[in-house]
Amino acid sequence: MKLVVAIVRPEKLNDVLEALFRAEVRGLSISRVQGHGGETERVETYRGTTVKMELSEKVRLEIGVSDHFVEPTVRAILASARTGEVGDGKIFVLPVEKVYRIRTGEEDTAAVTPVG
């Protein structure tokens, strides 16, 4: 099993979710994060106080998948999250030691396989 962690633009989240569901990837969590990936800085001004916003709003997706699902998952995210501008995000694929499904106690591949 692998854990796919993707950092994407918030405005692309809907597209990414759509692409994942179309690829039949159903188990995932998202969180709102702030990060810096080398984008051009945004300059904002509040009554004469000018600031450079170094952190941008991003969304982090965490998806536990069985090995043969890694490829479709990554492809779906790559295709749907891309705008071509700096700041599109990253995908990390991490090894996973052990997975349990809490409801049934199933382990590993069974635990990350969606219920039919």
Binding site: Q34, H36, V43, E44, Y46, T49, V51, M53, E54
Partner: peptide, 15 residues
Amino acid sequence: HGEEAYTSGEGAILV
């Protein structure tokens, strides 16, 4: 406008 309605100010560097 170069402004945000709900900003925490995290990551904002004074110019």
